[in-house]
Write a protein that binds this DNA or RNA. Structure first.
Lengths: 229, 229
DNA sequence: TGGTGCATTTCGCCC
DNA sequence: GGGCGAAGTGCACCA
């Protein structure tokens, strides 16, 4: 990775357009060809571009212009003055063990699948990522009455989650009845999809979601912060 | 900003949990207290934390442990070996002119408001960010028949956009009739909100959105890439 | 390779 | 300061 501290300005054109006025910043150029311009604030770069080819030219003022070119995108950095520059060998990609993350939605999904009692009394979980024509439902479950439940899981459930589960429920209600073998218990559940209802389980249920859920008669479950035990 | 090239490992605990195995990486510590660990690939850091206080301790192996502590979050970086370190003064926050971005959804919204013909024949735009009880509609318009239209604008319209506009339309249909003064023409539009329909305008209409829109009879408008002229 | 949806999302605007 | 929705979103998974 190369780090250049420079008084620079930048112009980007591609998915959008942006201009960055002159100032001293840190330019990171990684070995995969990605570039980013950082100021001294926050973790997000001001400008950036993924993998790109670099071309250096000289402008009318005798300054270097670094052009990073990728398909349909162009980032041009004008270098007014370089204050410092250094290159260091980092761990190469093939040896990077990567970041292991826990507590994601996928983990929460697995945990709720294994602890159906957390979703409500009498609920049995049948399948994760149940495919409907309108997208995959996080968990397909059945209530004590045997009716299918589309369970939407979120770490943070905003208004859109209520729309999402409604879309799945609407689609599932058009499905033909089906027998469903529960992998663990060996029981066969006869699913009448016309009776499908929805359920939202989340660590954080936002106010607008709760409002919408109430209006639509959509039950919600607040999973406690200490869910993983 | 301080840049440290070090053989390091890291543990994060907070909104989620993560572990980063040992390897040589670049650690960025900015003057606002934000930290990020970069490898030689992509612009996104492996680990990161916003503003935090730093504390240095020594572990059982005699290695430095840098702890970055913020409310409900902790990032601990174990430094196995430092290969390089340097500190450079960057443009301070008060002088940072910031990044000027063009071509955002807000710009597209303004442009469509000013060019209602791009939304369809006979459409008149009345107000931006029209507030409903279910959120703000990007543009309130009326069709040639005088019926209100909730226009949802996206740069990229995915399935959720169809849900969003449906939510707004449902809410608007419960509103009382109202007279609406058009600021430019001075005309008064008598709006019967029970007749509200939806419309999606986007630069990129994703397949699943088009599918949903078709099923729901929701019209879509593909704004050409050269919209700004 | 493109489509879909999550993210330790982050960030900015508005209330 | 919290709520809400966009982002030049990025990214990983899956078809």
């Amino acid at each position: 990775m190369r780090v250049i501290i420079a008084d620079c300005s930048a112009v980007y054109s591609g998915r959008g357009d942006s201009t960055l006025a002159r100032g001293t910043r840190a330019i990171l150029i990684k070995s995969d060809g990605s570039v980013s311009i950082h100021n001294d604030n926050s973790n997000k770069p001001l400008n950036y571009m993924k993998t790109a080819s670099q071309l250096i030219t000289i402008n009318g003022d005798g300054e270097e212009v670094w052009s990073f070119d990728a398909r349909h995108e162009l980032l041009q950095i004008t270098i007014h003055r370089i204050h410092g520059s250094f290159e260091e060998q980092l761990l190469d990609k093939s040896n990077e063990p990567g970041l292991k993350v826990d507590g994601t939605e996928a983990h929460l999904q697995q945990w709720l699948f294994d602890h159906p009692e957390a979703l409500g009394p009498g609920i049995t979980t049948l399948q994760r990522e149940f495919q409907t024509g309108a997208g995959a439902v996080d968990i397909l479950a059945v209530g004590s009455d045997g009716a299918p439940i589309a369970v939407e899981i979120k770490r943070v459930a905003a208004a859109g989650a209520a729309d999402q589960v409604r879309r799945y429920v609407e689609n599932m209600r058009t499905l033909d009845p089906a027998d469903f073998l529960h992998a663990q218990t060996g029981e066969i559940h006869q699913l009448d999809f016309t009776q499908t209802t929805g359920l939202i389980a989340a660590l954080d249920l936002r106010p607008k979601l709760l409002d919408l859920a109430q209006k639509r008669g959509l039950p919600t479950v607040a999973v406690p912060a200490y869910w993983r035990n």
